[in-house]
């Protein structure tokens, strides 16, 4: 607490964190270098691409860990049949509302992913919204209804595909003779200028992130809600 007086004032544009040339450089150089107006996305997916790649791996690992913790393998010990808290027949109002809302939510999620480098948004945000639409389906009906659309092996495949897309961009850069995740070399295969290639690769990378995040969000929910059985949940 005694250190508070040494911190810079609130909203001071000349505080050390704001006047350091790294963050100033991100603000002034991002658009000329990558043609992406949203600096946060550019820094996330391009300048700090390595960090973000392993962040995606962290999410994937968390999803796998939750399955590993909660799943019962081997002979089942006696499972006490629990009382069902919910009514079996679906509610008309809830059903209809979800039927209307889920497509809109998913469309909005795709918009957030696709416009991540022009407006607020990106792979993580869009992925979470997309995963939330499946969680809404599982809450409104039951887990079985959502499982019909995204069964568990498909979830894990999608999560793996996301990381594969991200690291695939990195290795494509390596194959073309540049550094790992140095997107500007990809203009050779994309047929655009190196600056625009960075912008397009950021979109591709964000799509990979969105795959993983959406899949793992639903995986975390369904495993926690169904005690790892993936049979019936809330």
């Amino acid at each position: 607490m005694s250190a508070v007086s040494d911190f810079p004032d609130w909203g001071d544009p000349h505080s050390p964190a704001n006047s350091y040339r790294l963050s100033q450089g991100y603000i002034t150089e991002t658009f000329p270098e990558t043609s992406v107006p949203n600096m946060v996305t550019a820094v996330l997916a391009d300048y700090r691409g390595y960090d973000t790649m392993f962040e995606t791996v962290v999410i994937f690992t968390a999803g796998i860990a939750i399955i590993a913790i909660l799943r019962r393998y081997g002979p089942k010990d006696k499972v006490v049949p629990e009382q069902k808290l919910y009514k079996k027949e679906p509610d008309l109002i809830v059903e209809t509302t979800c039927r209307l809302m889920i497509p809109i939510i998913q469309l909005f999620a795709l918009y957030v992913v696709a416009h991540g480098h022009h407006s607020p948004g990106g792979g993580f945000q869009g992925g979470v919204i997309f995963g939330a639409s499946f969680i809404l389906l599982a809450l409104a009906r039951d887990l079985q209804a959502a499982q019909k659309w995204v069964p568990e092996n498909r979830i894990l495949n999608l999560a793996g595909i996301g990381i594969f897309i991200y690291s695939g961009f990195g290795f494509l850069c390596l194959l073309l003779g540049s550094n790992f995740l140095d997107y500007s070399i990809l203009h050779k295969v994309m047929g655009v200028t190196p600056i625009e290639a960075r912008s397009h690769s950021m979109l591709g990378v964000e799509i990979g992130v969105a795959f993983t995040v959406a899949a793992i969000m639903f995986s975390i929910y369904s495993n926690l809600a169904s005690k790892g059985e993936m049979k019936e949940g809330l």
């Binding site: 964190a17 790294l22 963050s23 100033q24 991100y26 603000i27 002034t28 600096m39 946060v40 820094v43």
Partner: peptide
């Protein structure tokens, strides 16, 4: 740079 908050 003073027009935009710190993106980092």
């Amino acid at each position: 740079p003073d027009e935009f908050t710190n993106p980092l």
